[in-house]
């Protein structure tokens, strides 16, 4: 099957006064219709920037290189006007903080139907009808009344449901969720993830889920991509990932998940996340913190090792 979205050697660098910040350094992956991929990594791994590059929602001093093939066309060749027609229409996005993602002075219903009104020729009545329908679908009771309420009248979980409704109203092919559950209570987190999965299954929407929470990633996704220092270090199906994690960084991440009632002290990965300004051109970005470092790790780029059609790791250990 053909890819809905194919990222080829994506590089996103920021030109700042203090130097070039290399947030994303040549990542490639593909996503088919209806698939869910999770991108996992710690803060500063480039996971958010990589999806914001797809949406082209970065400041002008960001330089994006590579190819972003969406439905057979390279989005990086699109001008602003063409890109606007993609955003909120073919590709939608949900952000981390539902408390600040909604305009406090505009009614919920109005905000949800905006993508529909901006992209399609629909009457206000049709849009309203559809909004109420989708509000019900994302699990907001008495949607007709809620339509006329303001964001401050909603709880955090409810606001994230509103955000999901807003992202789905124009029936996008791809939904990007950037840490959609990070700022929510644990119980609400599970509800929101279930909702995303339910809607995805029902509509066949592809999903890119950005998270630093491995549990979240394994719960909803078909594939998991682990990023470090702006590069992909490991890519696998969720099953392979759980059975046979390979990259030292992945193992470190898995080991540093706290286990309830465990007497052992929590494992951590020693060292600091890399400074993206001082990243070396060659060598494995994780080498400085890696317990299994070899001399070639800092001198040569790690090889791409294919353990199966779907399991790829970038590490000298598996050569």
């Amino acid at each position: 099957m053909e890819y809905l979205l194919e990222i080829k050697n994506l590089k996103t660098h920021f030109n700042t006064k203090e130097g070039i910040v290399k947030a994303v350094n040549g990542i490639s992956y593909g996503l088919k219709k209806g698939e869910t991929v999770s991108i996992v990594g710690e803060s500063g791994s480039g996971k958010s920037v990589s999806v914001l590059s797809i949406m082209r929602l970065l400041p002008p001093y960001a330089k994006i290189n590579g190819e972003i093939i969406f439905k057979g066309e390279n989005l990086l060749t699109y001008d602003d006007k063409k890109m606007r027609k993609i955003r909120g229409n073919n590709i939608s996005m949900i952000f981390q903080d539902p408390m600040s993602s909604l305009n406090p002075t505009i009614k919920i219903g109005q905000q949800i139907m905006e993508p529909l009104l901006w992209h399609h020729k629909v009457s206000k009545n049709e849009a309203r009808h559809k909004t109420i329908q989708i509000l019900t679908e994302v699990g907001i009771p008495s949607a007709k009344e809620r339509f006329h309420q303001y964001p401050f009248e909603f709880s955090g979980g409810m606001r994230q449901r509103v955000m999901i409704a807003m992202a789905l109203i124009s029936e996008p092919d791809l939904l990007i969720a950037d840490e959609p559950t990070t700022s929510l209570d644990v119980t609400v987190q599970a509800q929101i993830l279930q909702l995303i999965r339910k809607i995805q299954e029902k509509r066949g929407t592809s999903v890119i889920l950005i998270t630093h929470n491995l549990a979240v990633a394994t719960m909803v996704s078909d594939y998991i991509i682990v990023m470090y220092g702006g590069r992909i270090v490991e890519k696998a199906t969720t099953e392979e990932f759980l059975k046979k994690p390979l990259h030292p960084y992945t193992l470190g991440l898995l080991n540093s998940i706290p286990i309830l009632k465990s007497k052992k002290s929590l494992n951590t990965i020693p060292g600091q996340p890399p400074n993206l300004r001082e990243l070396e051109e060659v060598g494995c970005p994780f080498a400085k913190r890696c317990g299994k470092k070899m001399s070639r790790c800092e001198e040569e780029n790690p090889p791409r090792i294919e353990l199966s059609d779907t399991h790829i790791v970038y590490c000298w250990l598996y050569e």
């Binding site: 229409n89 939608s92 952000f95 903080d97 305009n103 406090p104 901006w118 807003m166």
Partner: peptide, 25 residues
């Protein structure tokens, strides 16, 4: 503000994002 980025992400242009969302607030 975050909701302005959301408005861009929804596919709004200058008129929708700046004049409708930002200026009013």
């Amino acid at each position: 503000k975050e909701y302005i980025r959301v408005a861009w992400a929804k596919g709004g242009g200058f008129r929708q994002v700046v004049l409708k969302h930002a200026l009013r607030n």
